[in-house]
Design a binder for these strands. Sequence first.
RNA 1: GCAGACGUCGCUUAGCCUGGUAGAGCGCCGGAUUUGAAAUCCGGUGUCCCUUGGACUCGGGAGUUCAAAUCUCUCCGUCUGCGCCA
Length: 425
Amino acid sequence: MLDIAMFREHADIIRADHDKRNLPHDNIDAVIRLDEEWRQARYDSDQLRKVRNEAARGIAGAKKSGDTAAADSIMAEVKTIGAQIDALTERADACLAERDALRMRVPNILHESVPVGEDDQKNTLHSLHGEKVELDFEPRTHNDLVEANGWVDLGRGAKVAGSRFYFLMGDLARLEMALQQYTANFLVERGYTLVQPPLMMNREAYEGVTDLADFETVMYGVEPDKFYLIATSEHPLTAMRMDEIIEPAELPVKQVGISQCFRREVGAHGLSDRGIWRVHQFTKIEQIIICKPEDSWQHHEELFENALELWDSLGLHYRVVNICTGDMGSIAAKKYDLEAWLPGVSEYKEVVSCSNCTDYQANRLRMRYRTTDGNAAVHTLNSTAVATSRALVAIIEQNQLEDGRVRVPEVLQAYMGGQEVLQSL
RNA sequence: GCAGACGUCGCUUAGCCUGGUAGAGCGCCGGAUUUGAAAUCCGGUGUCCCUUGGACUCGGGAGUUCAAAUCUCUCCGUCUGCGCCA
């Protein structure tokens, strides 16, 4: 959420941003109005508390000097002040709660380099990487190939869990682990600390890092313990320092999270989502950075470069798009997506998302760092390194051989005992 | 799961029994002193509203009271022991 100071001092900036996103200004105006109401109620209750505190000091003084009559007299005077304070406090709390509920729905301020457009069709092409291999046979889709080779059992996944669950088997499971190891090592060598986070989080921590709508459409709840299964390790890693004041010497925090990710994928259907492209559970290796505000755009490029070099090293062809205003979501100020080429369906599809969230998550999480001028919100950034299910799809489709088997990317062969081709079951 | 102990400002801790302005040390920031540094001394060092003064803050929430770090209830967490267990 945005700093309340933005609403008080620079509401024009928020309004201009809403115009770019084609959003009405209602929430902005309501936040400003509720903020004023809250301050008034707060001031009134503070004044009454002042009266009560003065009386309390009077009582204490009178009792100390043995003048019980004076003490009783003051006590009688302030007998009912507590109820008035309670009423005003209740009103102040209600205004504040409503102010912040609305403030949570106001999206982040977009970076000036974000292209304006209504939906993902208006994302702009940033760059192309690797070579688009021309196969001298008809390319098959990954869902066709995994089934033919016995690498994925979706039917039995549906039987024991539900649709979009799967068993990953044999050499493809082995390749998945190789990909995890390789990617984690790749980033550890660049100075990132490897972290295995909790796979569940409580509601309060989760509200700090995600859009409220995600609780309905993305996250699985675990009853009766009121936990949520994480949708990405970005969430626990970023929430890790909730309510903390970070010493400047600790910044930037650079971590690589590795975890299983769980997503409900409500409303997702269609041919292009078949196989293991869009599933309820997958492994993801994620980069996160927590840094000082003045460094965040430089770090955003660093995360982006890491992702590019990693995907280049896998020998895959992909393109990069700069996400436009209409496709952005509420958390990020700017986002690059890497989209891998899938010859089976002749499409580029999203495999990596690299975001600078500026102070939006930090404000919700009350995550600050010390400056000589007081405490200030940090900036948070995150980027996929590899989501294994989607990386496997890209590898399978781009590295497929005419006989239906799949070539192992060279850098991963060492993690599979030198194996060069995945064998079917 | 059971029993006990504990949770106070960035860190360490006092205060709790017996309710009445949250104190000290360390760290950090500023100043004095110094050629410079150390040492020393002085001041500052949580949050919010600022209507210049104020209110809030002792793990969270609720209660009792004119008044709660302090008393009561409850939840959370940590430690120790027992139990269970990959």
